[in-house]
Design a protein around this nucleic acid. Structure first.
Lengths: 226, 226
DNA sequence: GTTAACTAACTAACCGTTTATATAGGAAGT
DNA sequence: ACTTCCTATATAAACGGTTAGTTAGTTAAC
């Protein structure tokens, strides 16, 4: 299920997300639940709970998409209460965006773009996508489900434009041929890197993994050959 | 909305799905809606109704996917009663499969595969996908939503294997280089052809359409260069 | 008159979101 | 240290709208 590392929570844990909770009169009719049944003491740790929810949401959204995801399943998988989703993330869609942003940020951080070595970049992207199967599915769900109204994560758009710029510069320097426009070169590299990923038109048999990786690198090499 | 041609209904219209329905389609000439007064008598034509439902379902599924699609919206768009969906197609998922099969069949029929001219095939596939934007979205929804359990349409799987075989033959004949395995060559060609389609990581600006098409063809040409 | 084609109304379950309530754990006062 | 009080954290239970699927009946066509 969760192939990715546990998701860290960096922002301050505040339950009342803008509105405060006036606790009001408390505990007059305490139906003590800790004495009934297998009482679970349940330690409190907002950051940890939030991280569990985010991880569970990642699995759920990657598997079922936004429309298909179920808040109940996420809460159950995270061993947290459903209402906490709303306390911590606002609503379903905001939760999805939190998940997506986390993953996009990690991808961009861990797979540095090298305009001067597009084949190498393709190979590293191939490796990353293979190691993080959720990544491509989350991105694809996002594309399909938010197609019209919502935009890409700003971070991603910026990165795409930035990388196209780097390619243009490399072409000016003569490091890269000008056969293709920067946009074409970038898009083809991305398409080839992800062509074999699970969830592509054809599934990749694990056995031929090395062969496919080498093929991707070679294909991109041919794009950048003068 | 509906960019594709109206979907023809070729199979016999049978209301009760397993049981026969002999009425056939003789009402092709009954154009009049019988005095368009307040009460709408509504002429009856099972084949036409089925076709309207299929077209409406195509738009709905392409836009929202399976989980996001709403039977009520489909029926309303088709100006048909909801219950007819179940009478004609069984259930939501079967309706989706009917839609998908129709589109896959049309794609395979209209874009013949030419192992000896992969760049040309890529160009034609590019054109087809551009002219039928629903195609790629439907296929992608299918991939994501039925990921685990369901298989590709048999027709598509057969086609993929068949085409890989054609590539292998061409390689044996020496028409194609053996740099890439047949599977790699096929998958890369498909990936490059669809890299620029709407709903890809980056949207294609219409202005640069010719440039992108030429780039796709050139990219595939480089894959098949010795 | 028979039957295929169609319809309105219904149902039962589901699901996102909210509310009311409880309690752990720390801070403040003594 | 001990008590008191506050609030962030957590939970169960509902709420209200939605949705896939059904049924029982009506009408058109032959």
């Amino acid at each position: 299920m969760s192939d990715d590392q546990p998701l860290p929570t960096n922002d301050q844990p505040s339950l009342s997300d803008g509105k405060r909770l006036l606790s009001s009169d408390r505990s007059l009719l305490t139906t003590d639940r800790s004495l009934l049944s297998g009482g679970k003491p349940r330690q409190r740790d907002a950051a940890a709970t939030k991280a569990r929810l985010l991880q569970a949401a990642t699995d759920e959204f990657a598997t079922h998409g936004i429309a298909g995801a179920r808040i109940d399943r996420i809460a159950a998988a995270a061993k947290a209460n459903k209402a906490l989703v709303y306390a911590y993330f606002g609503n379903k869609e905001a939760l999805f965006e939190a998940v997506l942003d986390t993953h996009v940020g990690r991808l961009l951080a861990e797979v540095p773009f090298t305009a001067d070595d597009l084949p190498g970049y393709a190979g590293r992207l191939f490796d990353y996508l293979l190691a993080h199967p959720h990544q491509l599915r989350l991105a694809t769900w996002h594309r399909l489900e938010e197609g019209a109204d919502k935009r890409n994560p700003a971070e991603l758009n910026d990165s795409l434009e930035h990388n196209a710029g780097l390619i243009a510069t490399a072409q000016d320097r003569g490091t890269l041929p000008t056969t293709f426009t920067p946009a074409d070169l970038l898009v083809f590299t991305l398409a080839l890197s992800s062509a074999w990923m699970p969830g592509s038109p054809t599934a990749m048999p694990r056995a031929a993994l090395d062969i496919h990786r080498a093929a991707v690198v070679e294909a991109v090499r041919r794009l950048v050959t003068k």
